[in-house]
Design a protein around this nucleic acid. Sequence first.
DNA 1: CGGTTGTTCAATCAAATGGTTGAACAAAGG
DNA 2: CCTTTGTTCAACCATTTGATTGAACAACCG
Lengths: 126, 126
Amino acid sequence: MTADALSKVFSALADPTRRDIVARLAVSDATVNEVSAPYAVSVQAVSKHLKVLEDAGLISRSRDAQRRPCHLEAEVFDLMTTWIERYQREAEERYERLDAVLAKLDTDSSTHPTDQPSNDRTGAAS
Amino acid sequence: MTADALSKVFSALADPTRRDIVARLAVSDATVNEVSAPYAVSVQAVSKHLKVLEDAGLISRSRDAQRRPCHLEAEVFDLMTTWIERYQREAEERYERLDAVLAKLDTDSSTHPTDQPSNDRTGAAS
DNA sequence: CGGTTGTTCAATCAAATGGTTGAACAAAGG
DNA sequence: CCTTTGTTCAACCATTTGATTGAACAACCG
């Protein structure tokens, strides 16, 4: 239960029903009943899904008489995109470095055939 | 087990250890042993994590004698970012529409006080 | 060949997850 | 007040998950 924020967000979106709910709430706010309408499962099950999304900070709820309208908090998405983009970029840069090394290796091979910088694969880089 | 690709990716990244492994593999490829080194858990546990990441398409593995080097496949990230950006954009646009409506409402209130377009909150849009 | 190293499979276990039903609570509305 | 509507809580159940240990398999190394 005391998982970090990022784990909660990823975990929340790992369920197709919950992603569907997010898609629904991106259109407009909706009550629990409205949200649960399209699904075969019980209202209670959807209520649990909404609790998971709320715990992850993906939705917030206000009060309107006995209704609890759900509102999508799209800012939390930034948490994920920041994480993703960081490693996507790192991997990309590494790929480009590897490419450069291979290109250089190819150029040098005509002049210095035994010059092998052994650029990763199985890592253990110094 | 037969979860869709997107669910698998989100689910795989919902675990802090697995995200950490991804971060490690963004730097360079590594064998199972190398990957498992920093963690307190058993090598078998890490091997399972790697299987989850592989199932999600986040890593691939080649063969080098008895070693199985792991390589990060960062393209799968696009699956997530595409999904995220879509609903982030939708929510943003809605927010801007709401803002515009509120601004208009404010302007009109001086001339046509009873003109209420009732822009969502609790949805149920016609 | 026999031993070591790297990796995975199998059985097991505790905890978490997603669903159910039934009851409770909250706020209108007759 | 009693009933209806919207939502949540509680107990329960089946399945999945993340970890463990012990055994197996694969490939190198002496």
